[in-house]
């Protein structure tokens, strides 16, 4: 019999580097008020230039299939993209769906990180908090789904 070896993500995972991958996961999966708050703060305190106002476009999804381990294109997903420049650093905001505001906010936050603004250090704590609540929410949803897990009973014949 094969043993249980699930990959899991842990609530006590914690700290570590707040790189772009992790940061964008939190800002997009979490409450969009967080991105708004960060971005509005930057817009108030720094001169910024909208290089590309939010626009719609496509992202082609590249996948790996599990039969032959090869790559193929699944299809496109609509995204909203915005670009903003702060201190000669162009930041990009990309998000699935039609979300002009969030795209712009993400672009501002991205350029803030690229320009190494001091605020970005102060955001870390808030981001970690939000990350935890996203994970809690996901675990809750998964727990609900696990109620539909089948408990097999072997029948005596």
């Amino acid at each position: 019999m094969v043993t249980w070896r699930q990959v899991t993500m842990n609530l006590e995972g914690g700290r570590g580097m707040m790189n772009r991958r992790r940061r964008t996961e939190i800002l997009i999966q979490g409450n969009s008020d967080l991105a708004r708050e960060f971005a509005e703060h930057i817009m108030e305190h720094y001169p910024y230039r909208e290089v590309m106002s939010p626009r719609y476009g496509l992202t082609m999804i590249k996948m790996r299939e599990t039969a032959k381990n090869s790559l193929f294109h699944l299809g496109e997903v609509l995204v909203t993209e915005a670009k903003v420049e702060i201190k000669q650093q162009i930041g990009i905001g990309i998000v699935i769906g039609m979300k002009e505001e969030l795209a712009k906010h993400l672009a501002i936050i991205d350029s803030a990180f690229k320009a190494n603004l001091k605020e970005t250090k102060e955001w870390e704590e808030r981001l970690l908090e939000e990350e935890e609540s996203i994970l809690t929410e996901k675990i809750k949803k998964q727990t609900e789904l696990l109620e539909t897990r089948v408990q097999f009973e072997t029948m005596d014949m």
Binding site: G57, L58, T59, M60, M63, R64, L74, V79, K138, L145
Partner: peptide, 30 residues
Amino acid sequence: LPRLYYSQTVETDRMFVERRISASFKDIPG
């Protein structure tokens, strides 16, 4: 619409599973 980007390779073992069944094995891990 313009095609702006190509995604990184998506691997489905990172899926948030909402449903998952097997007709081949009763006891699949998970």
